[in-house]
Amino acid sequence: MTIGLMTNKGLLYLYEYYSGGGMSQYYFEEYNVLGDSSVEIWRGQSPGENTPPKTPAKPTGPVSGEAGLEYTFTTSTTDPQNNDVYYMVYWGDVISEWLGPYNSGDTVSLTHTWNAVGDYTIMVKAKDTLDLESGWSDPAQISIIALPRLEIGNLTSSFGSISAQIRNVGAGDATNVDWSITLDGKLVFLGKETTGTFTKIMPGFSPKAKTGFVFGFGRVDVLVIVGDIQKTATATLFGPMVLKIVE
């Protein structure tokens, strides 16, 4: 529906359109007296009209990270009618579903994991409870790189030795990894300290660091050091036999 009339300022038009939220909404446009629609001098909205949320703030979060780890970005927006809002996130590799609802004006935390190395763009848009959508936010950037991440697994024993499993749970190769296993006890005669170096531990691989021949008696403290991480345990020796390891 369109209604036009003359006023002392020019031509006034009343437009009716379907908002998509189940209601007919209205707005006004007023032009110069010649009716030239290319010269718009005033436009207003009818009282009670629903309008979309404002464009969300640029997402805030880390600028670099490691493949396979989860990272958090925050953003916020407000809705002119104070309706609840939902967010959709473009993560650079996928687009999320609508997330929410959240209160208008609240800062929200959004999480994602990138599994491939690369540079990614993150943008957010919002919608209200009547499905009116904002534009996309300004983009944020994150660079995902492949790094090794080492863990010391279970300690096990066999006749005359103690072994420690070394796991690379990261996304990059670990190279020239120094390790040591030290036994501290009053009656440790052989195998007090063993050292070594792994030339390369690829992602997903779990080699074992193993002591030399161990011989002693009684309780000993076991210290395993791999790179800049370490693990402690206790063991009981009876000659070359390692009877019990407690981590």
Rank of each mutant, 00 (worst) to 15 (best):
F159Q: 11
S96D: 01
F217S: 10
G48L: 05
T175Q: 12
L237P: 02
V94Y: 05
S143Q: 14
L34D: 15
I41P: 00
Y86D: 08
M123R: 09
M88H: 09
E247Y: 03
W179L: 02
K127M: 13
L12K: 06
L147M: 13
S206T: 13
M23R: 13
D184N: 12
W42R: 13
Y27V: 00
V188M: 04
L11I: 15
Y17Q: 04
D184T: 15
V63H: 09
V214Y: 09
N168Y: 07
M241I: 15
L150T: 14
K54R: 07
D221P: 00
Q141S: 15
F215R: 02
T107A: 07
Y18P: 06
A146G: 11
L243Y: 02
K127E: 10
S96Q: 04
I144N: 06
G227V: 12
P80G: 09
S76W: 00
V33C: 12
V117G: 01
T7A: 03
T51N: 06
P207Y: 10
A171N: 01
L150P: 10
T129Y: 09
E16I: 05
V117R: 12
V89H: 01
S46T: 14
N168L: 07
P62N: 03
G48V: 12
D131H: 08
G218C: 08
S46K: 13
F217G: 03
Y13E: 12
